[in-house]
């Protein structure tokens, strides 16, 4: 009896997924792109320091407020006429720069306050982990006291529901195109930066073996600051894209997203930049397909079952290799 009901709902889910496959794919890829960008921050810091920066979700949250403030400086209110053309690009770029600057700067400050003093005293990684969790709570509660606990609305900057093109019958929206393309662009840029530049070589050297890198004359403190800065910049970019997509923020907005992005980083292989990219998209898509098949309330169950299954067969994640092993 129960089996029949489960089968009936599963076959209904399968029909739902088949009929709306591209719908689920595009919306899943959109949120997946944001997961990927945030996952890069976890993966970078882990690659260099072997530390899970649990306060990274708060760096993202600060970025959303940066983007919100940027629109307010420009005099936007929810309900204002939408922008088009050059003006729109200008507004988006301005918000992006502010969000990235705010997130990048707070990541650097966070490293100074929460991690460097511990590292200087040669503390254990466990102490740094506790410090990360403490910093996460402190930042989030500080924002709750400052901004209140209610959502604040991000203004609609442009007519984002306008259809850009149709993918097998699904009308792809302007914001979805913007989010997926800009996220991909930022990730490629970061990947190339780490692979091709002198500073990036320093990051890879420290990731591979920090003591040897130090002996070779790499300034380890500077590399660590750079790592946090890069992660912060990506989180800032993700913050603006998230605001364009979902249009509201508050003190704890980073929490769930942070958990998802961390999952994406582990799924793809933590410490691996391309793994974070892959993990984010896979997680976004699996969440959506799973919601279609089993119902939205099973979304997280499905994602984490997938994570456990992947780690059982590939303990280092889908792509596995670490940041240091990437070739120059």
């Amino acid at each position: 009896m129960i089996a029949t009901v489960v089968l009936a709902s599963l076959s209904e889910g399968a029909r739902l997924l088949r009929d709306n496959f591209w719908d689920y794919t595009v919306t899943g890829a959109t949120i997946g792109a944001i997961y990927s960008l945030v996952a890069l921050g976890y993966t970078l810091v882990y690659g260099v320091l072997r530390l899970i920066n649990f306060a990274h979700s708060e760096i993202f949250m600060i970025g959303t407020f940066g983007a919100l403030y940027a629109t307010q400086w420009l005099g936007f209110d929810p309900g204002d006429p939408k922008k088009t053309g050059i003006a729109l690009i200008g507004v988006l770029l301005f918000c992006l720069v502010i969000a990235m600057a705010v997130s990048g700067a707070s990541a650097v400050v966070l490293e100074r306050i929460a991690y460097r003093p511990l590292r200087r005293r040669g503390s254990t990684r466990l102490a740094a982990l506790i410090s990360a969790i403490g910093a996460s709570f402190a930042i989030s509660e500080a924002f709750a006291l400052w901004r209140g606990r209610n959502f604040e609305q991000f203004p609609r900057l442009f007519d984002k529901t306008h259809t850009v093109f149709t993918l097998f019958g699904y009308d792809v929206r302007a914001d979805q195109v913007l989010i997926i393309l800009s996220a991909l662009f930022m990730m490629v840029a970061l990947d190339q930066f780490v692979r091709r530049t002198r500073l990036g070589r320093g990051v890879r050297a420290v990731a591979q073996n920090s003591e040897t890198a130090q002996l070779m004359g790499v300034n380890i403190d500077r590399v660590i600051v750079l790592t946090f800065l890069l992660g912060g910049l990506m989180a800032g970019g993700a913050a603006l894209l998230d605001m364009v997509f979902l249009e509201q923020t508050r003190y704890n907005i980073g929490f769930i997203l942070g958990v998802k992005a961390f999952t994406a980083a582990v799924l793809g292989g933590i410490g691996n930049l391309r793994g974070a990219l892959l993990g984010g998209f896979v997680l976004g898509l699996v969440e959506n397909y799973g919601s279609a098949l089993f119902g939205t309330q099973w979304k997280d169950v499905i994602s984490f079952t997938l994570l456990v299954a992947v780690l059982m067969f590939r303990p280092t994640g889908l792509l596995g290799e670490s940041l240091g092993k990437a070739r120059a």
Binding site: N20, L246, N288, A292, K299
Partner: peptide, 20 residues
């Protein structure tokens, strides 16, 4: 019938279901 997670920001899977 669908049950959303209030802590989650993105309800797009539910939207697709309703649209369908």
């Amino acid at each position: 019938t669908d049950h959303v997670d209030p802590a989650s920001q993105d309800f797009s899977a539910t939207v697709t279901k309703v649209k369908d």
